[in-house]
Write a protein that binds this DNA or RNA. Structure first.
Lengths: 102, 102
DNA sequence: TGCGCCTATGTCAGATATGACATATTCTGT
DNA sequence: ACAGAATATGTCATATCTGACATAGGCGCA
């Protein structure tokens, strides 16, 4: 992750990934955030693979394009619940979810 | 699941598990709920294995005994976020989480 | 029986996540 | 370079989740 991006994230709500030492993150917080990133990444991959726009996915999950963008960018305002629901909507099975996070 | 329990759940917020046909649940809702149950079960197993009371765990996660009880009972008011955070607090690794849900 | 301890259930004010909207930025093809 | 589509960012009212509290039920033990 680039320093600029990191600083930007830090300046807002975040705290993340490989910057655990730099910021004040407990191992638990780190693990939680990394889990979210793994789900985000998986979501973007799936959507892209299906050749859907964020708008398309938004309609499938009954949310808005902007929230989909936030999901995929790992925005702190997005819950694991929403990520999981969205992945399921894209056809992810429990095993798929397991693979995404392990 | 026993009919009495099912009816009780139905009468409140729920909808669940093997009763997808009986209630009006989309496959997506079913998958989501079953995921939550898998996490609930895993949480209870871990806590029990560590010989911790719900109160002990509550303090570890900075919540209350009653919320822990709700987590373990699959109460609809509990988010996947909270379940995941609690499991992580109990030392669950990404792989452990993956195993729990797959 | 009575007494701790643990767990379950209900409720609620405050905290957080949500969808929607506006708008900005980046991308893609021409 | 331009237009149009896709994606990103900011904000906000409302919906949902949260911790805390009260209280009830259960279980072993003296």
């Amino acid at each position: 992750m680039k320093a600029a991006k990191r600083t930007k994230l830090e300046s807002k709500g975040w705290k993340l990934g490989s910057t655990a030492d730099f910021l004040e993150l407990t191992p638990e917080e780190t693990a939680y955030i990394e889990l979210k990133f793994a789900l985000s990444k998986s979501l973007k991959e799936r959507r892209t693979r299906e050749k859907l726009s964020q708008n398309d996915l938004a309609k499938m999950v009954k949310t808005s394009q902007s929230r989909v963008a936030k999901m995929e960018s790992g925005d702190p305002s997005v819950s694991v619940d929403l990520l999981v629901k969205s992945l399921i909507a894209l056809g992810a099975s429990p095993k798929d979810l397991a693979k995404a996070i392990a």
